[in-house]
Simulated scan of single mutants.
Amino acid sequence: MAHYDLEEQEQLDSLKTWWKMYGNLVTGLVSVAAVAVVGWQGWNWYQGGQSAKASAIYGVLEQAVAIGDAQKVKAAAGELAEKFGGTQYAALGAMLAAKQSFEAGDLKTAKAQLTWAADNAKDELKDLSRLRLAAIQLDEKAYDEAMKQLEAAHVSTFDARFLEMKGDVLSAQGKKVEARQAYKAAMEKSGDKPGAGRELLQQKLDSLGDAA
């Protein structure tokens, strides 16, 4: 029995020695892990709260758009961008506000809102914002600025639309050869499925005449 007690004592002494050497490190690692878990849960809770608040403001924006209250639209979109810029609602709000501003003839505000969305939105929303901004710049004959938007990196699903818009800009500049190349590339990206978009592209190509 004493033999087993001695073994147990040796194991206990070894454990004490190991803990003396590495105890602080283990405690520190456990503490860091605990803080990380709590932090992650807290972040998720915070993000959920942010999204809920942003959603409520976006609802106010939608109502303001429905009744044509331009000031309330601007205020709601501004609050989303300032306080909840990291949420998808902020980008959606900027784009919706830009549409309302554009239809009201306030192109300056529309461009500012689309520029914010183009700089801060993600993926498809960013690309759609760039396309809409380029369309306004095309109308204003700001061709270089429009082309800058269209040359930015974008998701592949928007390839055809970006190429078509490039064709529009080049055509407006009288660069028929380059415009035809852009339209043809857009046709290739759009695939073989018939549709209104493909028909419009063909019409744009035909309008260029015999450009090589």
Rank of each mutant, 00 (worst) to 15 (best):
V30C: 02
A121W: 08
Q137L: 13
K83T: 09
Q71G: 10
G191E: 14
G174S: 02
A186T: 09
D127C: 08
N44R: 10
V30P: 00
S156G: 03
A146M: 07
Q71H: 08
Y89P: 00
D123G: 11
K184H: 01
N24R: 06
A52R: 06
G209F: 00
G68A: 15
F84K: 05
L25C: 07
Y22A: 04
K184D: 02
G195F: 09
T17A: 10
T87E: 03
L96D: 06
S31A: 14
D159M: 08
T157I: 15
Y58P: 04
V169Q: 06
V155L: 10
A117H: 05
E62A: 15
L200Q: 15
G105R: 02
Q149F: 00
G42R: 11
A81C: 07
Q137Y: 09
Q137P: 00
V73A: 13
S171F: 07
K148R: 06
A185E: 09
A54E: 09
L205F: 03
L150N: 11
T87M: 01
V26Q: 01
H154Y: 03
A36L: 04
Q203E: 12
S55I: 00
G28D: 07
L107I: 11
Q63L: 15
V30S: 04
R132N: 15
R161P: 00
D159I: 11
A52C: 03
G86I: 05
Y4C: 05
D119T: 07
K126V: 03
F84I: 04
V60Y: 03
Y143D: 06
Q137V: 12
A97I: 06
E164F: 09
G39L: 10
A153V: 14
T157N: 13
A70L: 15
I57P: 01
Y4F: 05
A66D: 08
G209R: 04
E145C: 02
G42D: 07
F162C: 12
K189I: 12
I57R: 01
Q203W: 07
Q100T: 03
T17N: 02
L29M: 13
E151P: 00
A98Y: 11
K189P: 04
D123Q: 14
E79L: 04
D106Y: 12
A64H: 07
L200I: 13
Q50Y: 03
